[in-house]
Design a protein around this nucleic acid. Sequence first.
DNA 1: TGACAGTATATCATATTCGACATATCTTTC
DNA 2: GAAAGATATGTCGAATATGATATACTGTCA
Lengths: 108, 108
Amino acid sequence: MKTEKRRRLSRAGWKVGDTQEFLELSDAEMALIDVRVSLARELRRRRRLGGISQATLAERVGSSQSRVAKMEAGDPSVSIDLLVRTLLSIGSSAREIGRVIARAGGAT
Amino acid sequence: MKTEKRRRLSRAGWKVGDTQEFLELSDAEMALIDVRVSLARELRRRRRLGGISQATLAERVGSSQSRVAKMEAGDPSVSIDLLVRTLLSIGSSAREIGRVIARAGGAT
DNA sequence: TGACAGTATATCATATTCGACATATCTTTC
DNA sequence: GAAAGATATGTCGAATATGATATACTGTCA
């Protein structure tokens, strides 16, 4: 349930033996991560569908390969803004993006 | 249609006699604004539903009255991130937020 | 009218995010 | 298993977003 998921999420990126038992994440913070991750997945899906590399996509949207990699990884340094902007600029519609977000945190 | 909407949008904030005829906005840029605006509207709607002031909301989510005002105004200095974060922290679900975004640019 | 609560706008120091670059780690394909 | 192409990770200066503060505007009520 909630707690279990929280644990899984926070474990990623934390070495055993750390001072904190696990990251304290509010429901809102978790939901935000879910949103970011679902957009990240959608971006990767879209890119692969087009059969292009991260570098090509980066060039196409005016960014760099490393940033695209981070976008698709749902890296914390990537804002939802950037994800949405990127998706829109490769042809996704607000409608599609909305649907993706609406499903965030849902089925794997 | 598209061009007309573009004209309306860009006119806001431009004085007559400017060098540019009108701001050049790509479809993606327009869609991004639509998303921002729809989230802004949703925030205001939610806040009013709760019958609280911008100041109270600000305090509740750890921000300032002025920033809340800008959020609700869809000010360019406000990121989609902040809007989503704020909505989530006042109890909106990803599902609801997704729906709002999916409808962006739709009916007035 | 004037006081008052709410909202808008401007500005600023700080914090976060960005593209870029370098470099490391996969993945194929031969 | 070397070479090549793709993807991941770390860092940095510049750009942008943020909360805070000050102040102006807008009702509304007495």
